Amino acid sequence: MSFGQSVPSRRALLAAAALLPLAGRPAEASAAAPESAQRYYDRAARLAGQDPVLRALVKALGPDLTMPTAKPLAPMRIFDDVAVLGTSFVQATALLTSRGVILIDAMGSPDDAEKIIIPGLRAVGADPAQIKYVVVAHGHDDHFGGAQLLADRYGARVLMSRADWDLVAAERPGNAPRRDLVIADGQKLTLGDTTVTFHHTPGHTPGTVSPIFPVRWKGRRHTAMLWGGTNPPAAIEGKRATLSSVLDFAATMRRAGVEVELNNHGGADHGLARIEELRADPTRTANPFIIGRARAQRFMKVMEVMLRGRIAQDQEAAGGQAPRRS
């Protein structure tokens, strides 16, 4: 197994582009009549059409989102080598490699690790003692809460971006796992037959990470991504950072040939319903998480347009001037 070196990011090149109007709209017209937030939201709805995955994303990125109540979620293998464990509110994703488990996120508490993650892995035929790495996609406690218990019990290494190690140390010092491995942008983690590539996608938090990795369905290999943090922060600077990350990651996905879309909050992308589709018919040939390359790009485009709408709404609320962080 290896923990590779970082590679340069394209985000700096895209940061300015993130604030430009959508392609095809003349710059002069945009300067004279800025797009309204509602026009962006309407455009996103048209892009989503009747696609339940994209419609769920529009709703999740809307300004009036209400977070769902957590309900039990039975553990489920959604690919030959990927299992989802958690609740209807937040999920951990287990990559079941030939040499052990890479766990992406660890839910909200040691109790969650004890009562949901550990028995959940056993239920899907995996040994929790084989958890080698716990990857924290972003530094909110509903994603890192069980990490230290898993590290203490099984010797798992905990990974997070430097910015979010700093975030949890400042904001959640009593609950945070002990600082361990740092995820650099573009870094690779190999365990057995699986290599995960990590990409910094700041916005939801300063150090949000979104991985790309191989999965298998009925023995056939596919390329998956897991978006690390969906709902943008209140500050307009955070929304702009999220938009830049979306543009950057969409290009990364295109180059990697991503055709599988995953999320650590399955309510944001129709993921919970897709899990139940698989549970209802485990012999089915089609996997609803394999959405194809074109639809994966459309997913990112819907996210882009919704974020542009959120930024426009902030500017409208400030009388046309972008509000600044206090």
Rank of each mutant, 00 (worst) to 15 (best):
L14C: 15
A15G: 03
A15S: 10
A16Q: 15
A17P: 02
A18N: 03
A18Q: 07
L20D: 13
L20W: 11
L20S: 13
P21W: 14
L22V: 13
L22P: 05
G24D: 10
R25H: 07
P26G: 12
A27D: 10
A27T: 09
A27V: 12
A27H: 03
A29P: 00
A31S: 12
A33T: 13
A33M: 13
A33P: 01
P34K: 12
P34A: 15
P34V: 15
E35F: 14
S36M: 11
A37P: 08
A37Y: 02
A37E: 02
A37N: 04
Q38G: 05
R39V: 12
Y40E: 08
Y41V: 11
R43L: 11
A44P: 01
A44S: 13
A45E: 15
L47K: 10
L47G: 11
L47I: 10
Q50E: 13
Q50L: 10
P52R: 06
L54C: 10
R55A: 12
R55Y: 00
R55F: 00
V58A: 09
V58D: 04
K59R: 10
K59I: 08
L61I: 04
L61N: 02
P63M: 05
L65I: 13
T66W: 06
T66Q: 11
T66F: 04
T69F: 05
L73P: 02
L73V: 08
P75L: 05
M76C: 13
I78C: 01
F79M: 10
V82P: 00
L85Y: 01
L85S: 04
T87I: 15
S88E: 11
S88V: 13
F89C: 05
T93G: 00
A94E: 02
A94K: 03
L95C: 06
T97L: 08
T97P: 04
S98V: 11
G100P: 03
V101M: 01
V101Y: 01
V101K: 03
L103F: 00
L103I: 09
I104E: 03
A106P: 01
A106K: 07
A106N: 04
S109I: 09
D112K: 09
A113Y: 03
E114A: 14
E114D: 12
K115T: 14
K115G: 07
K115W: 14
I116A: 03
I116K: 06
I116N: 01
I117K: 04
I117W: 00
P119G: 11
P119Q: 13
R122H: 01
R122T: 09
R122L: 02
V124T: 09
